[in-house]
Design a protein around this nucleic acid. Sequence first.
DNA 1: CGCGACTTTGAATCAACTCAATGTGAGTGG
DNA 2: CCACTCACATTGAGTTGATTCAAAGTCGCG
Lengths: 212, 212
Amino acid sequence: MHAYETSRIALPLKPAQPASYGSAPLQPISFFPAGSEIYAQGEKAGAFYQVEFGAVRVYRLLADGRRQISAFHLAGETFGFEAGTTHHFFAEAINATGVRVFRLAAGTDMSHQLLPLALKGLTRAQEHLLVLGRQNAIERVAAFLIDMAERQGGLRQIELPMSRMDIGDYLGLTIETVSRVFTKLKEKGVIRLLNLRCVEIVKQDVLSNMGE
Amino acid sequence: MHAYETSRIALPLKPAQPASYGSAPLQPISFFPAGSEIYAQGEKAGAFYQVEFGAVRVYRLLADGRRQISAFHLAGETFGFEAGTTHHFFAEAINATGVRVFRLAAGTDMSHQLLPLALKGLTRAQEHLLVLGRQNAIERVAAFLIDMAERQGGLRQIELPMSRMDIGDYLGLTIETVSRVFTKLKEKGVIRLLNLRCVEIVKQDVLSNMGE
DNA sequence: CGCGACTTTGAATCAACTCAATGTGAGTGG
DNA sequence: CCACTCACATTGAGTTGATTCAAAGTCGCG
């Protein structure tokens, strides 16, 4: 993990939020530039992470380079506990990202804090299995947009911090197919593309009914 | 949940294994006939389960009936904690199945025991995302067979307690495609079908290299 | 302004699907 | 014990939705 740990320099004040993870001492924030690695498959896991700003992708690779992104993590969300002792996945900053690192001190029991996070992640993953296993391209993109909207407070306008490639690798589609579906939804008046990374959901109901 | 709780009748002796989940009192075994429901989506969750014998499928449905099986659970495996307070999934016995039920007594903290199980389930689900998102039919079936073999002690001969339909709904394929892939693997001499529910893995290495 | 990376669009291909027919095997009752 | 049945599985033929390959378009940034 290579990042600029600046908490003691730029952020000497202890923010309120991380206090929710209790006993651990002051948690430093690490900065990751766009595309940089937060942790790698095979690395030993000794921490979990909370996104302060920016966005993170967690993924696995096949030997021939095929990639499956298993989750995106936006500001406020927590990740990195998917492993017992060793990471089975890669985590990368999508954009310039700040991450609060919670190191798991040996002997400290965090299962209380971690269990709800793990269960939430499990439910998320299992719901995504349904999308990948049984939904077509339009349904997948619709499910993705609805999910992103909900996680951004249910606003009509949503930010997509990731590229079409990332979206494709999350939804099990090619970038071309993702692009074609965006175009089709745009033509139907379901969404509007304000720019490449910003979508307005015009017909929430139509989008929701695609996911079933 | 409708099952025959017979532990006090047929199994008065306390087996050794469940003692690993500690403080709870004697855990009854429930019997579920083939196809019966163990819990349903929307039911409130207040227990987790360990398969004693038989096999279980956990799945979700779309409104139009499409089904995605997110996991199979064989003898010795634990499931049912995928929810905070409410189940998001259905669980059914595939065959005649015995399940040890661990009720979560209010006030009792099981996070210690549950966290490793949740993490294992999370890792499993995320690995399955890669299969569904990025692998073709042959690779999916190969991954499935390897997984089943490992979970049955790495033996050459493996039992498939589930139907082709179940396998298809787990792998995001149709029964026809599953059947065609089995035939192709058989023709290549990679596997042998002793009967519908029993497979012998002849070329372990070939099968393993398909999954990448 | 011009470069480079990303995205969109188009045309042809292909893997998996649908629909349909046939095959198989476990369980039942005559 | 055998014939019958029914559910499940396999095989075949034709279709289709997503992919691949290729070209054109767009955006951000130095």
